[in-house]
Simulated assay, not measured.
Amino acid sequence: MRLFARRIKLSTASIFCTIFFLTAALQARANEELNSLLKDINGISVHSYLAVNAYYNYSANSGDKSLLQDIVDSLNGVNEATQALEDNSSKEVYQSDVETILDELQTLKELLNTNIKFVKDEGYPDLRLSDDLARQNKDITEKLALVQEKIYIDAPPLKSTPQQKSRDLALLVAQMMTKYSARSSSSVAQTFQGSETDKTLDQLALDVDSVLTSLDKSVSEPEAKKTLNGAQTKWKFIRNSYVNYNDNNVNYVVNLYSIRMIESLRELSEQL
């Protein structure tokens, strides 16, 4: 009888262990899929800002055809991330949000085309159209951020990982660069003012400092550390331009190193 009872206890313990490890494995798989969704969301957000940023630069230098190609390249990045989002099975939990975002992205592309056509025809930007573009992009980013927060609720550990921090920092730098470009272009400067609670560029620079410090403490793998060091070096080169904005700063240089920093941070997120 005792032997029988002991076997029952062992069997019960074995079942509980199996259930525990199976549940853990399923949760790990779910988190992996949600992490992939976070990557897609970040890709859309970053590239949409890069596209708007490229448009601001083009509106101030419409004779530079390479800036048109920058817009096209950024939109291709949006399309690739959007396709990955649509192919991700985890999106079904947030289907209604995703469908709204896809519609909003189509509107953004149409606004970009309308703005570009106006600049081509007239040689200068239409402030109302530029304002519509900035507002549409901001609205998309906010909707994507809401989905991101829902993912954090479903998978809390994903919020504070070095990988996600590097993604969020890439987006922050893209937002700062776009704000800087709008400010540098007198024709569209008033279209990117944001709300009264928006942080200034010098305040945002302090946020960049903080995240870079956090990443420096948590990233140890040699290849990832090398990539992070590259991002830090680029930041040191342009930090003062963001902190102490003035008309004498060269927007091209700030854009060049900001984009390279974004690329380094996105590469870092793939290495972590």
Rank of each mutant, 00 (worst) to 15 (best):
S62A: 00
S62C: 02
G63C: 02
D64I: 01
K65H: 03
S66L: 06
L68F: 04
Q69I: 06
D70G: 03
D70R: 12
I71W: 05
I71E: 13
I71H: 06
V72H: 08
V72W: 03
D73Q: 09
D73W: 03
S74A: 15
S74E: 12
L75W: 09
L75N: 09
G77V: 10
G77M: 14
V78K: 07
V78H: 07
E80V: 10
T82R: 15
Q83N: 10
A84E: 13
D87T: 07
D87A: 13
D87Y: 09
N88E: 10
S90W: 05
K91I: 08
E92F: 08
V93I: 13
Y94A: 06
Y94S: 05
Q95Y: 04
I101C: 03
L102F: 03
E104R: 04
E104C: 00
L105C: 04
L105W: 00
T107A: 14
T107N: 14
L108V: 04
K109L: 08
K109P: 05
N113I: 12
K117W: 07
K117Y: 13
V119H: 12
K120E: 14
K120D: 12
E122Y: 06
E122P: 00
Y124F: 15
P125C: 15
D126R: 11
D126W: 12
L127Y: 10
L127G: 00
L129G: 06
S130K: 12
S130E: 14
D131K: 14
L133P: 07
A134Q: 15
A134M: 15
R135Y: 10
Q136N: 11
K138C: 00
D139T: 12
I140Q: 07
I140P: 02
T141I: 13
T141F: 11
T141Q: 11
E142H: 11
L144G: 00
L144C: 04
L146R: 06
L146P: 01
L146N: 05
V147W: 01
K150D: 01
K150M: 04
I151S: 04
Y152Q: 04
A155K: 01
A155Y: 00
P156A: 02
P156T: 06
L158R: 01
L158V: 05
L158D: 00
L158I: 04
L158T: 03
K159Y: 03
K159V: 00
S160F: 02
S160T: 03
T161L: 03
T161W: 00
T161D: 02
Q164F: 01
K165P: 00
S166E: 06
S166Q: 05
S166K: 03
L169C: 05
A170I: 10
V173Q: 10
A174S: 15
Q175R: 11
Q175H: 05
Q175D: 08
M177H: 09
K179W: 07
K179G: 08
S181V: 12
S181N: 14
A182G: 15
R183T: 13
S185K: 11
S186A: 15
S186P: 03
S186R: 12
S186L: 13
V188R: 11
V188K: 14
V188N: 14
A189G: 11
